[in-house]
């Protein structure tokens, strides 16, 4: 955006002289309200409202706003969250943190069926780096280091493939990691908004959300899944602690 010249300033001053005082006060109140609400609205609803600094031209525009890579799979392309994710302004080369290699290599073993570079692609096309090895989804979920695998992304990657020897049930998501992340965001947004068919309960600081899907998202694995001939699953359960995703998997 071009910088304002002195002519622009004069034009604004002329407009302000013409407007009644109460309109100007109302306008200022609206600007202040927008200033405080804009980041929260973006966070709550996954919108991408521009900040006042960006509108005034004081904030550098994104270098690579259009990402043309389209590997996110069918679920990702169908979901509205996927279209938002493609508008992430930061390019991979700009935002790559130094300590992501461990988690991405472990995540790749979970069935993404692609090399390390593809793993980093899904992070940067869908998730936004918000700190050292911490990522935020468009819906506001945080994927941080933790779990036995070292990172939540590596942990949820275990639900991308069946563990037929595991006792009991094991929900398996059918799709790649990118479409799994999009589906998790979709379920989270609907469950937080108390959409029809969703459930939520709080258990000692953790919130457990359940959200149904129109289509099959996975199947039941583990020994119980094998016994039942791997029935298809159309619901997802999320366990969240303070916006940190702990785990997510399809359920019956």
């Amino acid at each position: 955006m071009a910088r304002r010249s002195s002519n622009d300033t004069e034009a604004i001053a002329n407009v302000l002289r013409v407007l009644p005082a109460k309109w100007i006060i109302g306008l200022l109140v609206a600007v202040v309200l927008y200033f405080f609400l804009q980041p929260r609205l973006n966070q709550w609803f996954g919108w991408s409202l521009p900040s006042i600094a960006a509108m005034a031209g004081n904030e550098a525009p994104a270098k690579n706003p259009k990402l043309t890579n389209n590997k996110t799979g069918s679920a990702a392309s169908k979901s509205p969250a996927a279209t938002k994710s493609t508008a992430e302004p930061k390019s991979p080369s700009e935002t790559k943190p130094s300590a992501v290699s461990k988690s991405s290599s472990t995540a790749s073993s979970g069935g993404a069926a692609s090399p390390k570079q593809a793993d980093e692609d899904y992070k940067y096309r869908i998730l936004k780096p918000v700190g050292r090895d911490r990522y935020e989804s468009p819906a506001g979920l945080i994927y941080a280091p933790g779990s036995e695998e070292g990172h939540r992304l590596a942990h949820i990657a275990k639900h991308l493939e069946d563990q037929p020897e595991r006792p009991g049930s094991h929900g398996v998501f059918e799709g790649d990691m990118a479409s799994f992340l999009v589906a998790i965001d979709d379920a989270y947004k609907r469950a937080r908004g108390h959409a029809k068919g969703t459930k939520s309960r709080v258990e000692d600081g953790m919130t457990v959300y359940e959200a149904p899907f129109d289509q099959t998202i996975g199947y039941l694995g583990g020994t119980e899944g094998a016994r039942k001939r791997n029935p298809k699953l159309k619901k997802m359960r999320l366990v969240i602690r303070d916006r940190n995703l702990i785990t997510a998997f399809p359920i019956q």
Partner: peptide
Amino acid sequence: CDDCETVWTDPSLRQKFTKGKVAAT
């Protein structure tokens, strides 16, 4: 729990342990 990481103090699963020195862990 090896999935949701809930901690109990013993196998009866009556008493959860939720406080620790490391947040969200």
